[in-house]
Design a protein around this nucleic acid. Structure first.
Length: 476
RNA sequence: GCCCCCAUCGUCUAGCGGCCUAGGACGGGGCCCUCUCAAGGCCCAAACAGCGGUUCGAGUCCGCUUGGGGGCACCA
């Protein structure tokens, strides 16, 4: 399940929620050759994680089931033959081998590859007999030789296609299962689908689909063909190679990777919903806000380049929107995964300090893992302040220790004023003095605010770590 | 090769004939804030692909060119 599939689910979901309709999950698994075990579950898990819930589906049932096309072969068989009876389709006994040769020949002669019509006008009785005798066959749509068809895409308007440019496409395969062209049209009718929102790679087969629907005399659903996603450069669509490239930078186009990478559903949703849909202002949207503002015919038909920087932006923005308890709940697993013992009381105190620093949830580790470690291991060279020697650094740190140890407790209110005074009287900069303490206390050069952090770990640990730092500096 | 679709800042987009000296967001640059890193505030640079029409008036409508994308399976 990649970004494209996620968006193809999101839009109809928003439309259904907006308009009081039903959003259904139908598994289109009519190609057994491409069956991937676990793919259906991955899809369901992805939708669940994103918060896109469906009203009918293979795992929850519904009034129009079954929702797996592989379980609907009898239906397709019936409708395929119905089309034969109506004179809009015909059984075809051509072998794939022969058809392949015909195609090669056509290509060589610079003709369009298409079905050569061998079985198109077979005597119906004769054909029926061959089928009854057990001969392998497919059922093809009998595309009119003349005229044209006009089908409408909601975003693009009416699109007229000459029938002569269309082929006698296979509707029912020799394995007895339908192709998408038949299965989807039959199911859309039977399941009372009002809106088909799909990728624009389906646009070329829209005329065929209109033909099939009209041959049955059914009402057409509204067709909406979404723009394709282009790779970040905007040149060409996302490829396997590009996907691997993104992964190296800590990004992915697969929904299944997002959680692991520290992205939250809110951020991912906000990101993809705006790739192909524009709101005039207030880009930051919750799912409810999306539902409230969604409008199918304001989707954009032009291709959209994937922009991971924007994913980071939305992810960080939504993280900042979380209440402390909620963020704690989401962050905890990342600490646990690092085998850190996280007590909720401390975590709740840490969160306000790191919230606005997180782009992804796993960023909590570099900022706050040290809160939950017994000791820290500062690098000696990092304990030496800029433009100072180790001895000078040790000297000012001893003075800092003196001040801090004289405090009954260390809080920003108690510690910062005397420390500022020390900075003032020493003639050094706050960056130099606090920098040493930061490395001493946190073990790193980048951390949440110093005095707030000190308050959380407590005076005892602070003094212990500062003493250790002095010892290190004195040995240099 | 043939068919189809698309076209506004680097990117996602607003704009549906006069409200446009083209708006927002990301990214970029600058300033402010500042104990690091962020976040936040203020400011700046940045686009209607080109050419013809239609119209009193075109980013908005039409045509062509160019560029981009998709499709031509017993895959979806």
């Amino acid at each position: 399940m990649h970004l494209g599939s996620a968006r193809s689910a999101l839009y109809p979901f928003l439309l259904a929620r907006r308009s009081g309709g039903q959003f259904i999950l139908r598994i289109e698994d009519t190609d057994q050759k491409r069956f991937v075990p676990g793919a259906e579950q991955e899809l369901i898990d992805g939708l669940h994680w994103l918060g896109i819930d469906y009203d009918e589906g293979p795992d929850i049932g519904g009034p129009f089931g079954p929702y797996r096309q592989s379980e609907r072969r009898a239906t397709y068989h019936e409708y395929a033959w119905k089309l034969v009876e109506l004179g809009h389709a015909f059984p075809c006994f051509c072998t794939p081998d022969r058809l392949e040769k015909v195609r090669q020949e056509q290509m060589k002669n610079k003709q369009n590859p298409r079905y050569d019509g061998t079985c198109r006008n077979l005597d119906p009785e004769e054909a029926r007999k061959r089928v009854a005798a057990g001969e392998k066959y497919v059922i093809r749509f009998k595309m009119p030789k003349e005229g044209s068809i006009t089908a409408t895409d909601l975003l693009r308007g009416p699109i007229t296609t000459e029938n002569s440019a269309l082929d006698d496409s296979v509707l029912l395969k020799s394995d007895g299962l339908a192709t998408y062209h038949l299965a989807a049209m039959v199911d859309d009718h039977l399941m009372e689908i009002t809106h088909v929102i799909r990728g624009s790679e389906w646009l070329p087969s829209l005329p065929l689909h209109a033909h099939v629907i009209r041959a049955f005399g059914w009402e057409e659903p509204v067709f909406v063909h979404l723009s394709v996603f282009l790779k970040p450069s905007g040149k060409g669509k996302m490829s396997k190679r590009e996907a691997a490239e993104a992964m190296k930078d800590g990004y992915s186009i697969f929904v299944g990777d997002m959680k692991e990478l520290g992205y939250i559903p809110e951020g991912v949703l906000n990101w993809i919903v705006l790739m192909g849909w524009g709101v005039s202002e207030d880009d930051v949207l919750s799912l409810d806000q999306m539902i409230a503002r969604f409008d199918v015919d304001s989707l954009t038909p032009s291709p959209a380049a994937i922009n991971f920087a924007k994913l980071d932006h939305f992810n960080g923005t939504h993280i900042r929107l979380f209440p402390t308890e909620e963020l704690a709940r989401r962050l905890k697993p990342y600490f646990v995964k690092e085998n850190l013992e996280v007590d909720n009381e401390t975590l709740l105190k840490v969160i306000p300090l790191i919230r606005e620093r997180l782009v992804t949830l796993d960023d909590c580790l570099p900022f706050a893992a040290w809160f939950f470690r017994e000791t820290v291991e500062p690098k000696p060279e990092e304990l030496v302040a800029k433009n100072l020697t180790a001895a000078q650094s040790a000297e000012i740190t001893r003075k800092s220790l003196e001040i801090l140890s004289g405090l009954s407790e260390i809080t920003p209110a108690t510690a910062e004023p005397p420390m500022r005074a020390l900075v003032e009287s020493s003639g050094l900069s706050a960056g130099q003095v606090f920098g040493i303490l930061r490395v001493a206390v946190t073990g790193q050069t980048v951390s949440p605010p110093l005095f707030e952090s000190m308050e959380i770990i407590g005076k005892e640990k602070v003094l212990e770590r500062v003493r250790k730092a002095i010892a290190i500096l004195e040995k240099m």
